[in-house]
Amino acid sequence: MNTEIYEHDNDVEVTHKTNTIELNNWIDHLKYINKEVNNLLSMGDLNTKQVNNAILNQFRKKKHENETLLNALIKYSNSRVDIAECEDLNCDMVFIKEHEVYRRNYLYHLEKYRRLKDEFFALIKEAKQ
């Protein structure tokens, strides 16, 4: 989907284009999180005395959850090619509502990941004191 916004685009077209941009950003971010989790697991393995094994297991679980969400977003992204086939507002609204569900899932996942990462760094900081 072309994501360039033109003056003649209506509100629904602009919404679809901005949702596509947002979705691509989510996918890129989740790919980065996969790399980051691998690095954090490596750091945890180096500091096994300071880092609780339960935290490392939570990171492994989070990595799996991240990959699951990433795959779902890629599949969703591929399904969005059908947006061009929409001929009425009801069809457009199905895509817009679906996007909102994925937005909530992404933000929830991100918040849980950030909390886990904060807990991890707090343990390392505590161990160094």
Rank of each mutant, 00 (worst) to 15 (best):
D92R: 11
K97D: 14
N105K: 15
F95T: 02
E7M: 08
K128Y: 08
D11W: 01
I21D: 04
E36R: 13
I83A: 02
I83D: 02
D45N: 14
L70F: 12
L40F: 10
L107M: 14
H64S: 12
F120D: 04
C91M: 05
N78S: 09
H99E: 12
D82W: 05
K97C: 04
V37Y: 07
C86V: 09
E100W: 01
L41C: 02
L107S: 07
N39I: 09
N78W: 00
R115W: 06
T15D: 07
E87L: 10
K125E: 10
I55W: 06
R103V: 11
N24F: 01
E111W: 03
N10T: 02
V51Q: 03
K49C: 02
F121Q: 07
L30E: 03
N34E: 14
T3V: 13
E4V: 09
D92A: 11
N105D: 15
L23T: 05
K31C: 04
E22F: 05
K62N: 11
H8E: 11
A84L: 11
D9Q: 04
S77R: 14
K128F: 07
C91A: 09
E67G: 11
T20Q: 14
L69R: 10
K61Q: 14
E36T: 08
Y6M: 06
V12C: 03
V81N: 08
A127F: 10
C91S: 07
A122M: 11
L107I: 07
E98Q: 12
R80F: 01
Y108K: 14
Y76D: 12
T68E: 12
I74V: 15
I74C: 01
F121K: 10
V37C: 02
L40K: 10
F121S: 05
I21C: 05
R104W: 05
S42V: 01
R114M: 12
D45C: 01
D82K: 14
E85V: 02
Y102N: 06
M93N: 13
I21M: 07
Y76H: 13
D82A: 14
F120Y: 11
K17M: 02
N47P: 00
E4M: 03
N53E: 09
N53W: 00
T48M: 10
K75G: 04
F121I: 06
K61Y: 06
Y102P: 01
A72N: 15
E126V: 07
K112L: 13
R60N: 15
S79F: 03
E126M: 09
E100A: 13
I124E: 11
A127E: 05
N52K: 13
N52S: 15
C86K: 06
E87K: 15
D11R: 10
Y106M: 09
V14K: 15
I96L: 06
I55Q: 05
N71M: 06
H64E: 13
K117M: 12
E100L: 07
L70M: 04
V81C: 01
N34C: 15
C91K: 06
R114W: 04
T68N: 09
R60F: 01
L73W: 02
M43A: 09
F121R: 06
I74L: 13
K62Q: 15
S77W: 01
S77E: 12
H64P: 00
L73A: 04
N57Q: 14
F121D: 07
E13M: 13
A54W: 01
R80G: 02
L41I: 15
C91G: 03
L30V: 03
I33T: 07
V12W: 08
K49R: 06
M93E: 13
